[in-house]
Amino acid sequence: MKPALTLLDRTLHLARYPQRKNETLQAWDAADEYLINHSHDMVLDPQRPILIFNDSFGALSCWFAEKGPVTSVSDSYIAQQGCRQNLAANALPDVTQFDCLAELPANPQLVLIKLPKNNRLLTWQLQQLCHLVPDDCIIIGAGKAKEIHTSTLKLCEKYLGETKTSLAVKKARLVFIKADKTLAKPMPAPKTWDVPEHGLTLTNHANVFSGESLDIGGRFLLEHIPQNPSLNNIIDLGCGNGVISLKAAQLNPQAKITSVDESYMAVASCQENAKLNLDNPEQIHAIVNNCLDGLEADWADLVLCNPPFHQQNAITDHIAWQMFCDAQQVLRPRGQLIVIGNRQLGYDEKMKRIFGNVKKIAQNSKFIIYLSGK
């Protein structure tokens, strides 16, 4: 793992967030380097905004922080924390950090977009920009060459304007977009659909997992949520749109549900779904966080968890490890952790190492649901 980005006679010390011992992944990629190399000789107005979208851990924000007023736009709480950490480590001025639902600053001079893999989020961001950018604004996207498909370029053409691409360098590619204000359309409403077998109506903002239907893992877990009058405090860890929280609340009306996700759009969707589906929406308290950082120890009766197996674009199991360790801390004695995962992920071994016990409570051809007790 390289701890420092050195380009153009300048060095930045950058780390992923949260920092781990023996980290094997670096905090920037070839697309970041390509954007920096391409943009370094631009003459920028120190008063006009620079917008940076989807900056994984703040590499771009750090590089441009002294060149003008930077606004970094990300749906990821972890990415924002990483950006703050790296700005401080390099003694750089703060940048403004917004989530993807916030109103953006007017009259930007430069927009840099790390192209997201989720086309729904990309479409949302392109439509935001089409309403916002002036004619002289420079817009450059970047990503891995293998992930910039013809469909990606067609989205840029459809929702923002004329699009051209660069040659690939270190397997990364740039995308140059000229905004066409005649393409501006009203921002789309969140996608909504029903889950009639559970009496739920779900709404999803653009970057929420499984944004157009209930995912099959979540559907399976819904059938195995405990109903017990002794459950007073339940945590839905990695809540997404809150469907597990909603079912837990319906089954256990006496319980307070804490719904946690690192995606701002997920938490906003969860809050809206509580209002749509519950007589008492305040039964669900939804927060953005890095797993269960800072939550009180020994208070929760039950943690429900469907862990992700990637961070940004990297496949990793450290998030599941942190989720299980954090759950062990916040659970009261005899509290329980219930986890669903694909059969091949081997979550049972991790849970047994942390809790000392694990058992299967349900399985099908694709998923296994495990339970560990504290």
Results as ranks from 00 to 15, higher is better:
Phe64Thr: 02
Ile50Trp: 01
Cys130Ala: 13
Cys130Pro: 09
Asp99Gly: 10
Cys130Thr: 15
Leu132Lys: 04
Asp135Gly: 05
Cys100Gln: 14
Cys62Val: 09
Trp63Ala: 10
Cys100Phe: 08
Pro116Cys: 03
Leu129Ser: 03
Leu122Ser: 00
Ser61Leu: 05
Ser76Pro: 14
Leu104Gln: 11
Ile50Asp: 05
Pro49Leu: 07
Lys67Asn: 13
Gln81Ser: 10
Phe57Ile: 09
Leu104Ile: 12
Gln109Leu: 08
Pro49Val: 05
Gln127Asn: 10
Ala79Phe: 04
Leu110Asp: 07
Asp94Gly: 08
Cys62Met: 11
Val70Gln: 02
Asp135Glu: 14
Trp63Pro: 10
Ala59Arg: 05
Phe57Tyr: 15
Val111Gly: 00
Leu60His: 04
Asn119Phe: 14
Thr71Met: 05
Pro116Asn: 05
Val133Gly: 00
Val70Leu: 01
Asp136Gln: 13
Cys83Ser: 12
Pro134Val: 08
Leu129Tyr: 11
Glu103Leu: 13
Val133Cys: 11
Pro108Trp: 05
Leu129Gln: 12
Leu101Gln: 15
Leu101Gly: 14
Cys130Ile: 01
Glu103Ser: 15
Leu60Lys: 00
Asn107Ala: 14
Phe53Thr: 00
Leu110Glu: 08
Cys83Asp: 09
Val95Asn: 00
Lys67Glu: 12
Pro116Ile: 04
Leu121Val: 02
Ala59Lys: 06
Gln97His: 11
Ile50Arg: 04
Leu129Gly: 13
Asn90Ala: 00
Leu104Thr: 10
Leu132Arg: 12
Ile78Ser: 13
Arg84Gln: 15
Ile50His: 06
Leu121Trp: 00
Gln97Lys: 12
Phe98Pro: 01
Leu132Ile: 04
Asp136Pro: 06
Asn86Gln: 03
Asp94Leu: 13
Leu104Gly: 09
Gly58Ile: 06
Leu126Val: 03
Arg84Ala: 10
Leu51Asp: 06
Val95Tyr: 02
Pro69Thr: 06
Lys67Pro: 05
Tyr77Phe: 15
Gln80Phe: 03
Ala89Ile: 01
Pro116Trp: 09
Cys62Arg: 01
Lys117His: 02
Leu92Lys: 08
Ile52Pro: 02
Pro108Arg: 03
Glu103Pro: 11
Leu129Thr: 04
Ser74Asp: 14
Ile50Cys: 07
Cys130Tyr: 07
Leu87Met: 04
Ala91Gln: 15
Cys130Asn: 13
Ser72Leu: 14
Ala59Ile: 06
Cys62Glu: 03
Ala106Gln: 15
Asn90Ile: 00
